[in-house]
Simulated scan of single mutants.
Amino acid sequence: MMAILDSAMIMPRTCAAADQVLLLDTVGSTNTYAADLVREGVLFGTHGANGVNAGKSAWSGHEIVAIAANEQTAGRGRLDHTWTSVPGESFIVSLVVSVPVSIMRDLSVSGWLQMIAGCEVRDAIVGAVRDCGGGFDENIGGISLKWPNDIFVDGRKLGGVLAEMVPITGCGDRVAIVIGVGLNLAIAQERLPIDMAMSLQLIVHNLPDAAVMRDAIAARWVQGLRSRLADFEEDPHREAVRAREAMIPICWTLGKSCEAHFVDGTTLRGKAVALNDDASLTIEDQEGVLRRVSTADVGVLSK
């Protein structure tokens, strides 16, 4: 049976940063659990006794709720990939935020929201490592992002980001975004799920245990994302430009041979040559034709 744990004791930094924190011992998927709470009106709704609006006269629309789990048994990645975990090894956290519907309808800017979340996770990892007195292996490259949602270290996958839009009960002008992140924190080399996977403990020295790292990373992520979302809501087009400028130097995919797998089963091979203003990726195919990719699973074929 799923149990709700004492988040104030186990994730004190995150509790200080977020408006509400729910910590579960085990869950199928933190994203699914969070989305269900939004649909039921428990989060951001008008009647949820346990929601962020409970006991408040009004919901501001700028709350951030964090939902974390020690174990995830049916986690989902982008394009229905799976992400499972066992206790004590992983960072499994979903943040629930809201943005104006008008931003989500503007396809020239809405694609940046997931990448902004990824950039903030990247910064949170680096900041948390420094906070904990850890040091990166000098032989390992920096943390980068593989378009559009994977967190990489020197060409190996440390984690991923999945953002999903969920309508808010009784609210027509804002929509919830559930942003889930899974990170390999303390998985031994021989237990990594795939050859190209990486775990934080394998590249950083002197880290505390996974629970402490989860709290440190989540707290920084909440703080960073809160600031970025406020800026994005104030001027989404300005922030889209800012996001692109920040993403280009840390985008692992750019300049590399890659293969894009689309939901209809087709595949595109070529070289990633540009990150566009609307957050899409331009791939130059093997005939030299430039193809704009907005939704696909893009794998890097060579470094």
Score class of each variant (00 low, 15 high):
Cys251Ser: 12
Val212Cys: 10
Ala66Met: 02
Asp173Gly: 04
Phe232Cys: 06
Asp209Asn: 01
Ala246Thr: 15
Phe91Val: 10
Val86Asn: 03
Lys157Thr: 02
Gly75Arg: 03
Gly45Tyr: 00
Thr82Asp: 14
Ala260His: 04
Ala128Asn: 06
Ala35Tyr: 06
Val222Asp: 03
Gly141Phe: 13
Ala163His: 01
Val178Met: 02
Asp195Met: 08
Leu192Val: 06
Phe232Asp: 13
Asn184Gln: 09
Gly51Ile: 09
Ser257Cys: 09
Leu145Met: 07
Asn70Tyr: 08
Ile10His: 14
Ala163Tyr: 12
Phe262Ser: 14
Lys271Pro: 00
Ile151Cys: 01
Ile125Lys: 08
Arg130Glu: 12
Leu23Lys: 05
Gly160Ser: 12
Ile168Tyr: 08
Val161Ser: 02
Gly48Arg: 12
Pro100Arg: 04
Asp131Pro: 09
Arg238Pro: 03
Val222Gly: 14
Met165Trp: 10
Ala279Trp: 06
Gly288Ile: 03
Met165Ile: 10
Val153Gln: 11
Ile143Met: 15
Ala124Cys: 10
Leu290Pro: 10
Arg214Phe: 05
Ser98Asp: 07
Leu229Trp: 05
Met247Trp: 06
Thr30Lys: 04
Met115Arg: 08
Gly48Asn: 02
Ile4Gln: 13
Ala272Cys: 14
Gln223Trp: 08
Asn206Leu: 13
Val109Gln: 01
Leu23Ser: 03
Thr32Pro: 11
Ile143Val: 13
Leu290Ser: 13
Ile92Pro: 04
Glu138Arg: 15
Ser60Gly: 15
Val96Arg: 13
Asp36Lys: 05
Met9Gln: 14
Leu281Trp: 05
Val178Pro: 10
Val289Asn: 12
His62Tyr: 00
His237Asn: 05
Ala243Val: 07
Arg130Gln: 14
Leu22Tyr: 05
Lys157Leu: 00
Gly224Lys: 10
Glu120Ile: 07
Asp231Tyr: 00
Gln72Gly: 11
Glu120Ala: 10
Asn149Pro: 02
Arg244Phe: 07
Ala211Asn: 13
Leu281Asn: 00
Val101Asp: 04
Cys251Ile: 02
Val96Leu: 06
Arg244Tyr: 05
Thr266Ala: 15
Ala8Asp: 15
Trp59Ser: 12
Leu202Arg: 08
Thr30Asn: 07
Ile283Phe: 04
Leu107Tyr: 00
Gly141Ile: 07
Glu120Gly: 02
Val93Asn: 04
Asp131Met: 15
Ala274His: 01
Arg78Tyr: 03
Ser102Ala: 14
Ala66His: 05
Asp19Met: 07
Val212Trp: 06
Gly299Cys: 01
Ala124Lys: 12
Asn149Met: 09
Glu89Ile: 12
Pro12Ala: 09
Asp277Ile: 02
Leu202Ile: 09
Gly41Ile: 09
Val273Ser: 00
Val204Thr: 12
Thr266Val: 08
Ala296Arg: 11
Phe44Met: 08
Pro208Val: 00
Asp19Cys: 11
Asp231Lys: 15
Ala260Met: 06
Arg292Tyr: 03
Met198Glu: 12
Ala188Asp: 11
Ser144Ala: 11
Leu95Tyr: 05
Gly75Trp: 03
Thr84His: 09
Val52Ala: 00
Lys303Cys: 01
Asn53Lys: 12
Ile103Tyr: 02
Gln189Arg: 15
Ser302Asp: 09
Gly270Cys: 05
Phe152Pro: 01
Gly299Met: 00
Glu234Leu: 15
Glu40Leu: 12
Leu254His: 04
Leu37Arg: 12
Glu63Pro: 03
Leu145Ala: 01
Ser98Lys: 14
Gly61Cys: 00
Trp112Ala: 03
Leu200Arg: 01
Trp147Met: 07
Val222Thr: 12
Glu138Leu: 01
Leu162Phe: 13
